[in-house]
Each structure stands twice: as structure tokens, then as C-alpha cells.
């Protein structure tokens, strides 16, 4: 590697430092329908998480140097993947196999099914199990989240070389980190987990679009805009 280990680990140290504090859910009280209340609470949380995610993305080393068009493309394509890394990480080892959307919003299978999110529950539990089996470190989680955004296969790309450099920097940071732990296969294994994350995020996007289109669940403007970009 062209750069000393310390400069690479700076990327991961920076990602750890700028990782946002998990948000709390604001319980919706606009309806007596329990399932709808859960959905509205979840969608409100998701919308606020999106706002935080956009602020977080700006702090990933190299992201703000991309053109505005490419920043938008990456976020429009990879936002759900980046958010789901957090959900799957928080949901590890939960009794009752609950999904931890927030400390005060934990949903089990029955609650998800009642809210019309059975498919999302199944997909997210599968992702959570995968991460749990891999025994991820916090360093790996923050890097995976940034890579999910960088690796979003956005199209069209305004400046492919800059996006490629952005991806390479994160990849090299991960490689350096794993080699410093003498884990020569870990970086590859993490990269090979990205397709499952993409698949899970696609199912999540479909689930929320269906809620909006078929059950007319109202969504905040930013969330709707990002779902529509899919």
C-alpha cells in the first residue's frame, strides 16, 4: 500500500467518530389503530434517520469532494442499505428475534406481520443473522455502511473516476484494518455480504412503497422523494 497504516486507519477512526447517535422513535398518537400507529411511528423515524444519514454522508472522507449530481445519485441509490446496516447491527442477539429500529421501537415477527411488514421482517432477520454469524466489529460496521453508499451502482455517474477513487479509499481502509488484525479473508467476506444487503434494502423499499400506494400510509416528503428515486 502506498500509504502508511496510520493514515488508512484514520478513515475508520473518522467514521467511528462521526457515527451518529441512534435516534429514538416518537410514538405516533394520531390514531387508535395499533398497527397503523406502529407504521406511522416507523416512517417518522425513517424520515428523521434519512436526514441524519445525509449529514453523515457529507462527513465520509471523500464524499463532499464528489459532484453534487454524484452525491445525489449515491444517496438515492444506497440510502436504504446504509440505514439497514444500523438496524441489523442493533438487532443482533435480541431475545424474541425482535428488530431494533430504535431503542424504544422494537418489533417482533407478530407486530411486523400485523403492520404488513412480514416480508421486511424475514429479510431483515436474515441479514441480522448473517452479520451476527460474522461477529462484526464496530470498525467493520461503520466501514460497511460507508461502502454500501459508495458501492451503490448509481447510474448515470457524473464523474466515474472520482466515485471510483472514493470507493477505493474505503476499500483500502478496510483492507488495512483487516490486515492489521491479521484477518486476511475478512475484507473479502465483508464485500461478499454486500449483495445480501442490497437485496434486503430492495425488499424494504418495496415494502414501504406498497404501504404508501396500496394502504395509503402517509409518508414524509423526504422519505417519499427517496423512495420515488428507486
Amino acid at each position: 500500500y502506498a500509504h502508511p497504516v496510520s493514515s488508512r486507519n484514520k478513515v475508520i477512526s473518522h467514521l467511528l467518530l462521526t457515527e451518529p447517535t441512534p435516534l429514538a422513535a416518537n410514538q405516533d398518537d394520531s390514531t387508535n389503530d395499533g398497527s397503523l400507529r406502529t407504521l406511522l411511528t416507523l416512517c417518522d423515524l425513517l424520515n428523521r434517520e434519512l436526514l441524519v444519514l445525509i449529514g453523515w454522508a457529507k462527513q465520509i472522507p471523500g464524499f463532499s469532494g464528489l459532484s453534487l449530481v454524484d452525491q445525489m445519485s449515491l444517496l438515492q441509490s444506497g440510502w436504504m442499505e446504509a440505514l439497514l446496516v444500523g438496524v441489523a447491527w442493533r438487532s443482533q442477539g435480541m431475545p424474541g428475534e425482535e428488530l431494533v429500529f430504535a431503542g424504544n421501537l422494537r418489533l417482533d415477527e407478530a407486530q411486523c406481520r400485523a403492520a404488513g411488514l412480514a416480508d421486511l421482517y424475514e429479510a431483515l432477520r436474515h441479514l441480522t443473522s448473517k452479520y451476527q454469524a460474522m461477529n462484526l466489529t464496530p470498525e467493520e460496521v461503520v466501514t460497511l455502511k460507508a461502502m454500501a453508499l459508495a458501492n451503490s451502482d448509481a447510474d448515470p455517474v457524473d464523474c466515474p473516476d472520482s466515485v471510483q477513487r472514493f470507493q477505493d479509499e474505503l476499500h483500502e481502509a478496510l483492507q488495512e484494518y483487516e490486515l492489521s488484525r491479521r484477518e486476511q479473508h475478512r475484507a473479502g467476506r465483508l464485500l461478499m455480504s454486500l449483495p445480501l444487503l442490497r437485496q434486503t434494502a430492495d425488499r424494504a423499499v418495496q415494502a414501504f412503497l406498497q404501504l404508501h400506494r396500496h394502504r395509503c400510509v402517509p409518508l414524509h416528503k423526504l422519505l417519499l422523494e427517496m423512495l420515488d428515486a428507486k
Partner: peptide, 20 residues
Amino acid sequence: KEKHKILHRLLQNSTSPVEL
């Protein structure tokens, strides 16, 4: 850009984290 105006505005605002 017109279709994605909230994201566009949030990214343009500043390089600091987005205020809630």
C-alpha cells in the same frame, strides 16, 4: 433535480451535518 429537490437542497446547504 426538480424531482429530488429536498435532497438537492440538503446537500447544497453546507458541508456540516444537517440540522434537524
